[in-house]
């Protein structure tokens, strides 16, 4: 059973990752591979759209943690957008909003990337 899907789009030099479904210890490796691939390709401006993300556990959150330092080292960032309340709730419990920029929608997050460059 695979209840998790990842799509990547590119817009104005920003990689937009659409996450869909359940991000747990079973599916986190797929997300990890996607992030690793972008970083190998030196694509450090990453926007994760969580609109269709139904679930996240610490295994999924760990992937965000694993790459944030590296992308920032190369002047990029991982920003998040369209986070459903129940997903935000988990981020919030762990204090992630202090570390990650979370935007209401993709346009706002894209603007922040463009402002910087």
């Amino acid at each position: 059973m695979n209840d998790f899907k990842i799509k990547i789009r590119e817009q104005s030099d920003v990689q937009i990752i659409d996450l869909k479904g359940y991000l747990d210890a079973h599916t986190a490796s797929e997300f990890e591979q996607t992030m690793q691939k972008l970083i190998n390709e030196k694509k450090f401006n990453i926007l994760v759209n969580c609109k269709n993300l139904s679930y996240i556990s610490s295994a999924g959150l760990g992937v965000f943690m694993a790459y944030i330092e590296e992308v920032r080292k190369y002047k990029g960032d991982i920003k998040l957008a369209n986070m459903p309340p129940k997903i935000y709730n988990v981020f919030d419990i762990l204090g992630f909003p202090l570390i990650y920029e979370i935007y209401n929608n993709e346009e706002e997050a894209l603007k922040k990337f463009l402002k910087k460059s």
């Binding site: 556990s57 295994a59 959150l61 760990g62 943690m65 330092e69 419990i93 762990l94 202090l98 570390i99």
Partner: peptide, 24 residues
């Protein structure tokens, strides 16, 4: 309890899960 600053330096996912369990 995970210290997030510390976590970013020393990546430790196990502690996050434990902290979530206690919070939830």
């Amino acid at each position: 309890k995970p210290d997030l600053k510390h976590h970013l330096e020393r990546y430790n996912k196990g502690g996050l899960g434990m902290f979530l369990m206690r919070s939830l």
